[in-house]
């Protein structure tokens, strides 16, 4: 900035009428231009440099710690301890009917599912028990039948024996005849 001022002052002192030269493009104006161009060729680049440097400085934004979100102490904060930004601090109350109804719907759905599954389970268990009971009954019946059969066979045997005893007692000829009729073994 300083050299330009000195040039201007020189021009003014030497020419005497600076305004005329500037108004009409004549010889004095040309002289002035040449003089000006000779000496202060160096400063304009300086000016340019300053102009270029200024926007670069503006671009460099200084962030505050709050903006960066860097914790004050250099330590690990577990996930979930810090609340996310922009969220309401403290408890969220449920005081309106709509939100209560939505919570109720969720709870009811859960409970209905639970009850349904319980009923289903109890029914299945009931079916299994019924099947087992029937099986056990069938088995018992079979056992009873077997027992009855053996009983009957035992009775028959006893009867036969008693028949033999009765037959042998009265007379030998009849019993022999009966025996003969019973035994039918033939040898060729």
């Amino acid at each position: 900035m300083a050299p330009t001022r000195t040039v201007k002052s020189k021009d003014f002192s030497k020419d005497g009428n600076k305004f005329k030269g500037s108004a009409t493009p004549g010889v004095p104006g040309a002289n002035m231009k040449s003089r000006v161009s000779k000496k202060p060729k160096a400063p304009p680049p300086k000016q340019q440099k300053t102009k270029l440097a200024a926007p670069a400085k503006k671009k460099k934004r200084v962030y505050t710690e709050k903006e960066l979100g860097i914790p004050k102490l250099n330590m690990i904060t577990p996930v979930g301890v810090e609340l996310p930004k922009g969220k309401k601090k403290g408890k969220v109350f449920v005081d309106d009917q709509e939100s209560m109804m939505t919570i109720l719907a969720i709870v009811n759905a859960n409970k209905a599912g639970q009850i349904e599954s319980k009923i289903m389970k109890s029914r299945q268990m009931e079916e299994i028990r019924e099947a087992r009971r029937k099986e056990a009954e069938a088995r018992q019946e079979q056992r009873n039948l077997k027992l009855e059969e053996t009983k009957a066979s035992m009775r028959k045997k006893r009867k036969r024996r008693s028949d033999v005893v009765v037959d042998t007692d009265p007379s030998g000829s009849d019993s022999k005849g009966a025996k003969a009729s019973r035994k039918r073994v033939s040898f060729a």
């Binding site: 969220v92 449920v94 919570i103 969720i106 709870v107």
Partner: peptide, 8 residues
């Protein structure tokens, strides 16, 4: 009033 978890 109750919070959401309390209501549930």
């Amino acid at each position: 009033p109750l919070t959401e978890t309390e209501t549930q």
